[in-house]
């Protein structure tokens, strides 16, 4: 049975790491920004050209749409990723995808399990400070900045709001059980759901 797990996440919640562990345990492909490498390969171009626009909100006033052609690189790259996900889903393959509005883009897929990973503020600050070698204040600012960006990106393309629990099948706070504890519980949940 095909299953697709979409993981929305707050910055610092460990959502990406949780997704990677789940993919390893379930033996399925893991899609994050590596999607751009595959898209670049298909288009015979360099992924470097595409990466700076990954999961970036469209910049208003700096782009226009003419006869349905938008020249916002952010929007074009986002839509390329959405198309890639749709194509992958249609192929029947099971996979895990982090971010990229996947819970909305793939909402019509029968096997979709949409998750959102949140976390306690202190735990997120500690995690970001440790992983990025930052002070706590810098980490707090980075979290605010990244979450603002993710929210703007998500809410431009999706009807449901980013992080709103009504848009996701399961919303979980990774600070309570830790990263691996959260992975364990999610793995059990997914196995039950896909039986």
């Amino acid at each position: 049975m095909q299953f697709i797990i979409s993981i929305g996440r707050e910055y610092g919640s460990g959502g990406h790491e949780i997704g990677r562990h789940l993919a390893e345990r379930l033996g399925v492909d893991f899609c994050d920004r590596n999607m751009l490498d595959r898209i670049a390969e298909e288009k015979d171009t360099s992924a470097e050209n595409l990466r700076k626009y990954d999961e970036t909100p469209k910049r208003f006033l700096l782009s226009r749409t003419v006869r349905g052609f938008s020249n916002s690189p952010e929007e074009i790259i986002a839509r390329m990723q959405f198309e890639y996900l749709e194509k992958k889903a249609k192929s029947g393959e099971s996979f895990i995808v982090v971010g990229r509005c996947a819970e909305s883009v793939l909402k019509d897929c029968e096997g979709l399990i949409s998750l959102f990973i949140t976390g306690d503020e202190d735990a997120k600050i500690d995690r970001v400070a440790e992983h990025r070698s930052m002070t706590r204040d810098q980490a707090k600012m980075a979290i605010l900045r990244h979450d603002k960006k993710r929210k703007a990106y998500h809410n431009y393309y999706c009807e449901g709001k980013w992080g709103d629990s009504r848009n996701y099948e399961l919303t979980i706070n990774s600070s309570k059980l830790g990263i691996m504890g959260t992975v364990d519980i999610l793995e059990q949940y997914i196995r039950l759901r896909t039986q």
């Binding site: 898209i39 670049a40 288009k43 015979d44 171009t45 360099s46 050209n49 595409l50 782009s63 226009r64 749409t65 003419v66 006869r67 052609f69 938008s70 020249n71 690189p73 074009i76 790259i77 390329m80």
Partner: peptide, 11 residues
């Protein structure tokens, strides 16, 4: 707009 859009779509 159309030129830059076509270029971006081609990667």
């Amino acid at each position: 707009v159309v030129g830059t859009s076509a270029a971006a779509k081609a990667g």
